[in-house]
Structure formats: structure tokens, C-alpha cells
Simulated assay, not measured.
Amino acid sequence: MKIQNIRWSLMALGTCAALLSTSAHAVWTFDQTNVTNLAGTNGGDPTLSLSGVYTTNNTSTGAVNGNWTAASLSWYQYNGQGMSSDGSQTPNHALDNNGNTEAVLLKFGASTVLTSIGLGYTSNGTCYNSTTKASKTLANDQSCSSLGSGWSLVQNGQTQVDVSLFRWTGTGTPTGNPTPLVGQSSTAMAGWELVGNYGDMVTDTSNPYNLVNSSGKTSSWWLISAYNSGFSQTASESRGSLDNGGDYFKLYSVAGTKCTSTVDSKGVCGGTTSKTPEPATLALTSVALLGVAGLRRRQVKASA
């Protein structure tokens, strides 16, 4: 009887420990003009700030060939964050790799495992004529209406876009002047690792979003960029068909968890992430203590 009670006590404590170390994913949504010190959905989530950067593309190959330059992000109602570094006509006010390659720099208040990316708008930059069944790729800052009547933009729905995801692996704040990454080579990107190229992202504003970073790598700094084959780093994961120049999207949100464990040599967070909010922690602790007290009372009765 005593052995059985001890076994149940250990199981109760083990369950409590597992619950205490578990946490829900945090979500940061960008459907607002303010993108500085954004709060996550849980009380203990790190804050998140966004900034925009872009680099020029080689006019013949489409690959990046310049240094990163600072740019302003713009909020588009119901869609998320976009940029107009290379034009303001639809769809060029999105994040794209047509003319320039545009990206969003994410600064978390603590090391965070990014797990999914929400897109509020996607387009492949192609105009379609429902009458003639013809299609045409937009030139930089060109609109479908400039092609005549009957032309409309292929967007949203299941339109797939290609996205590259980087994380900062260096110490401290990423290099750049006057702000992180600015002035740095877009093809070398010293101190950054290409985590993955994802060629099948779609419009998705329901958490969990387009999944990324399956290995669980962590960092306080992330870069979400329209895909460009000019990046020289080898991605640790890649999926879908990848092409360059036809990717337009607006960044709606991201989801992830705060890393509170050790990080291994590959940058993977070694344990559970993001602590449980304090009220839930106290409740779980109380349940565990009550369970242990009850087992103790039964043990005393059995020995009487």
C-alpha cells in the first residue's frame, strides 16, 4: 500500500511539473499603425517591435545585389504591414521582391522561437483577363487597369508566395548603421542564418498560421523577407517550389514562444518555452499540493 501511494505521489508531482512548464503560443498581430513594443497574447510574453528594410535587385537576374536600406512600413486595414520602396500601385505596396527585395525586421524583448507567420494578403503580381483567358505579369509599379478593361489582379485565396526567414546568431544587437542591418550586405549578412525558404505560403489570418522553423531555433532578432535566390546561405529547411520576383504579401501576424531553456549549438531552444501566466501557475501549484496532502492522509489511515 505504501509503495502504491508513493507511486501516485510521484505521478501527481510529475504531472504538475509538466503542466507548469507548458505554455500556449503567443501571438503578435500587426493590424495597427503602431508596431513598437507590441504585446503578445499572454501576460509574460516578450514585446515585439518591427522595422522595414529593403535592398535593390540585379536588373537582369532579379537577385539581390545591394546593401540593406531602412524603409517605412505601412499598415493596410485588414491586411497587415506592407512597404512602398519600389512603388505604391497595387500590389507593389506589399512586401515583395519585384524591383527591390523587401523585408521586416522583428526585435523581440527576449529570445523567441518563431513558429508561424500570418499573411493578410498575397499576390503573385499577375493580371488575368477573364474574357480572353490571358495573363500578364505586372511591371514594377504597374496596375492591371493600365492593361485595359477586363484585367484583374490574381491575389488572395490560395495564391502561393515564397518567403525567406532569417535569425540573428551573433551576440548583442545586429550590426548596422544607424539601425540594425542597415548598410550591411544583403548577400553576405554576417551574423545571420537563413533558417528556411518557404515556397507555399498563403493568405492566413487564423492561428496557427503558415508554419515555419520546425527545428525550434530561437533568437531575439528575426528577418522575414520576400524570397530571393541571391541569398548565399544554405537554408536548414526548404519547401515548395521557389521562384524569384513574383511574391507579394502583407505581414499580418506572427506566433511563437519565449525560450526559457538552454540553447544548443544549433540554436535550438533545448526545453519548453514561455512560462505559464502567474495565475495559472498558482492554481496548478495549489492542485498539486492538495493532491499530495490527500495522498498523505490516505497513507496515514492505511497505516493506522
Rank of each mutant, 00 (worst) to 15 (best):
Q184L: 11
V202P: 02
A110Q: 04
E237D: 11
D141Y: 09
V163T: 15
S135W: 05
N58K: 12
D86V: 06
L95S: 07
L19Q: 08
S238H: 12
S241G: 12
H93R: 07
G191R: 15
F30C: 13
Q4Y: 07
G40Y: 00
T171Q: 08
S146L: 13
Q233G: 13
S186E: 10
S225E: 01
Q158A: 03
Y121T: 08
L13C: 12
P46G: 05
S21C: 05
G172E: 05
K133H: 15
V268K: 14
S219V: 04
G191P: 04
P91Y: 09
V104P: 05
L165E: 03
N98T: 05
S149Y: 08
G199N: 05
R297I: 04
G196W: 00
S220A: 15
T171N: 10
V287P: 01
S206H: 04
N124I: 14
T272Q: 06
E278Y: 15
S219P: 07
S185Q: 03
A302H: 08
A103M: 05
R7Q: 07
V195T: 00
Y121F: 07
S84K: 15
T122M: 03
D96C: 13
R297E: 08
W221S: 06
L223E: 10
L38K: 03
V212L: 15
Y252V: 11
A226N: 04
T203A: 12
K133S: 12
P277E: 07
W8R: 12
T90N: 13
N197K: 09
Y128K: 04
S185C: 11
S274Q: 10
S84D: 03
P277N: 13
T273F: 09
G270M: 11
E237W: 00
K2T: 04
S143E: 09
T59M: 10
M201F: 14
S146A: 12
Y54P: 04
D86M: 10
R297C: 02
W75V: 15
D200W: 08
G291T: 07
Q32R: 09
I3M: 14
N197F: 01
A12K: 06
Q89T: 11
L114V: 01
C127V: 08
T273G: 08
T132Y: 10
N92V: 04
A110E: 12
T56R: 13
S123G: 11
P91E: 04
A71V: 10
A94F: 03
T115C: 14
A24T: 14
P178K: 07
G109P: 02
D243F: 03
G216Y: 01
D247Q: 07
V254H: 11
N79K: 12
N129P: 13
G256P: 02
S303I: 05
M1R: 15
G87F: 13
V113S: 00
G176P: 03
T131Y: 01
G245P: 02
S84Y: 09
T61E: 12
M1K: 14
R298P: 00
Q81D: 08
